[in-house]
Nucleic acid binder design. Structure first.
Lengths: 228, 228
DNA sequence: GAAACGCCTTGATCCGCATCAATTCCTCGG
DNA sequence: CCGAGGAATTGATGCGGATCAAGGCGTTTC
């Protein structure tokens, strides 16, 4: 993949959802303090427990946030794609990162240091309100994830995931998995083996067709009905 | 319990963490739009799916937020005590409440309507930054809860809960459960029976002593060691 | 003070999913 | 085009914790 190199940080920032529509001089202040960096596939960006530098913005590529467990296992909390940010919440508290961050593809990112971010928020009410909106979305997603993981069984979790990934609202559609099956399984709090078995089971029942990372949902309604 | 009735809403608000330190006129605007209400023990404040009125502030009492499951079960997401707020995140999005809210004790609350809150945020940068801090704390708590529920076994979850509830950092201390054992069990994503058994097991091992809602932790270090 | 109710505990059983193990399938580097 | 190493699948097994069931304890109600 050839990564973006031409555009100034200022211009890149202005294209991110969180900063779009900000006054030009506000943005310039932020851009001045922002550092661009790259991460290769599988590169660790930070570990749980590291001290927080600031807010990270995924410009291109993909970053996986995961909770480490005692025996070297990990539970994927979130997968960030282009336009997503991470580390901001913890930048406002005085705590270390609670998760690991690892690139799952070659990625281009921005780092807005804590200090720069706090100063910008002090000056720009617009940015503050965008930040509030962004945090709210994350909180909402988190509730939804807990719902999926904690009060559904394995089949329901997978069905739930497929349905939520539906681009259109048609009765049949195709989902292209946004990450490896292991990663998806971990997000759903399933062993990879179980995830595979459930997909097999749904195929068996003629509800979906699996071809690598592409999954065709043949009948949305019957799929939903299958779990309840 | 005799609930607070004398003080004006303005004065009550000024004592809440989220609003403390705000300019007097900013606060007055908010206070003007704010409604005070009471909830009896076990009274439902709203259901998952209801349209959002605004942000709720617990002044006195206690409110339980829970996710309803398909078969009438529920998973307690959070228990709000005095000074805590709920519903704000979802007030910034255009979504219905994702959780049920139910008073677990006779309670006094404030409701700040969506519109009033948004207007106040537009005017007060200080309030915005306090709101960001508050949302960040919630997000962090949520990660911590996921960690507890998803990558620990039953004993570890209970130990984790006890240790985190420690008021001091001494090697032995007493915890007074903030809610019924059923509620705590649900927060830990355990069946009440399992919670009871684990407490029994820890007592058996001489690590804690249970007397109703009061739990004495006799040896913090050994307790932690017991789960690993 | 008795009755009734909800909360908690204790015991017996069962099932969902993790785990372990063995192939097979893909992908990528050379 | 081949080989290597990770990803995914498939099968066999075991365990943790849910569920069902029954009984004890404390609290409220009249």
């Amino acid at each position: 993949m050839i990564l973006e190199t031409r555009h100034s940080i200022h211009e890149i920032l202005s294209r991110q959802p969180l900063f779009r529509g900000l006054a030009d001089d506000e943005l310039r202040e932020i851009a001045n303090g922002t550092r661009e960096y790259r991460a290769k596939k599988n590169e660790i960006i930070f570990h749980s427990g590291d001290t927080v530098e600031g807010m990270h913005v995924v410009v291109m590529g993909q970053v996986k946030l995961s909770l480490p467990s005692s025996q070297g296992m990990e539970k994927v909390v979130h997968v960030c794609g282009p336009g997503n940010t991470f580390g901001e919440a913890v930048a406002f508290l005085d705590k270390p990162y609670p998760v690991n961050a690892q690139a799952t593809a070659e990625s281009l990112l921005l780092l807005i240091p804590k200090r720069v971010l706090l100063d910008a928020l002090e000056l720009s009410n617009t940015l503050c309100r965008k930040m509030i909106a962004s945090l709210s979305v994350r909180l909402h997603e988190m509730i939804s994830d807990m719902e999926t993981c904690l009060l559904r069984n394995s089949v329901q979790r997978v069905v739930c995931f497929l349905v939520q990934s539906a681009p259109e609202s048609g009765d049949s559609f195709e989902v292209s998995l946004p990450a490896s099956k292991q990663t998806i399984a971990s997000q759903l709090n399933l062993a990879p083996e179980t995830f595979s078995r459930v997909l097999g089971q749904l195929s068996e029942a003629g509800l979906i067709q699996v071809r690598g990372r592409r999954i065709a949902v043949l009948d949305r309604q019957r799929l939903i009905g299958f779990s309840g």
